[in-house]
């Protein structure tokens, strides 16, 4: 039953500034409706791209398509300038990692075991030797060391989220896709996650983060892509994209953008009863 399998092609080291992941005229349908509609977007090595937009704008669907989970109805996706379809699942796993929104586990593996699963794509390659180091570093970076030996299923939501992040980091893929990594986290760990994203980018990785907190996006992302009803409303440096008028229109809620009194960096705030 052991079929001959193609040896996986190992990825070349990421080149700072090169396009890591590119979507062209991408349309993704769910139940016959275009949830992502004609989106053209690329992510480069060394940058953090925040994907923002209201609920139901198609952020997670776009991410799932970029990841290869959903087949687009139209358009193309290229990974490291090759079509997504040219890679086997394993080869893709060596090039991009993905943090899902929900974390499930059918059996009570320990948190450390879960993080080690991130190393599975590297089994049998020369980089397998880095396994222990990658796991230990990832656990530290995600602040998950204290509960590494506890069963994942017994952890709190926030702890599970950090373990899942550590698993993604241990995978050491050059393109990192994070779907709402901060949703279950307290403010310290939200900052920690975006610190990790920045460090990944500094290492030459390309990071795409779906995030609801516009202020976090403004603070940490190199570029922001704003989705509205499946279409790309704007994409560029955060100061250009996150303007009060545009956000107010897209979110259908009065939003103001103010300079921080001390640093001058833009703060994105909903206008509340005055």
């Amino acid at each position: 039953m052991i079929a001959l399998r193609r040896r996986p092609r190992l990825p070349a080291p990421p080149e700072h500034g090169a396009v890591a992941l590119a979507a062209a005229a991408l349309t993704v349908e769910r139940a016959g409706r275009a949830v992502v509609d004609d989106v053209t977007l690329d992510v480069r090595h060394g940058e953090v791209l925040a994907l923002v937009g209201p609920n139901g704008a198609g952020k997670s669907t776009l991410l799932a398509a970029l990841c290869g989970d959903l087949r687009p109805a139209a358009g193309t996706i290229r990974v490291a300038s090759e079509p997504l379809d040219a890679f086997t699942p394993r080869e893709l796993a060596l090039r991009r990692s993905m943090l899902p929104q929900k974390h499930t586990l059918s059996f009570p593996f320990t948190a450390g075991d879960v993080v080690r699963m991130g190393r599975v794509p590297w089994a049998g390659t020369p980089l397998e030797d880095d396994d222990d180091h990658a796991v230990a570093t990832a656990l530290r970076d995600a602040d998950a060391v204290p509960f590494a030996d506890r069963p994942f299923t017994a952890l709190s939501g926030g702890e599970q989220a950090r373990v899942a992040l550590a698993r993604v980091l241990a995978q050491r893929a050059a393109t990192v896709l994070l779907d709402e990594p901060t949703a279950a986290l307290d403010i310290r760990h939200q900052e920690l996650v975006f610190g990790v994203a920045r460090r990944e980018a500094a290492r030459g990785h390309a990071v795409v983060v779906v995030v609801h907190d516009l202020d976090l996006a403004a603070a940490y992302a190199d570029r922001v892509a704003l989705l509205a009803e499946g279409r790309l409303a704007a994409c560029g440096p955060s100061a250009d994209v996150l303007t009060a008028d545009r956000l107010t229109e897209v979110y259908r809620h009065d939003i103001e953008v103010l300079p921080h009194p001390r640093t001058g960096r833009p703060l994105v705030l909903p206008r509340r009863g005055e």
Partner: peptide
Amino acid sequence: ALGERPARQLGVD
């Protein structure tokens, strides 16, 4: 055990 999608994302066919 992580689920089908995460398993596929980790290169499992």
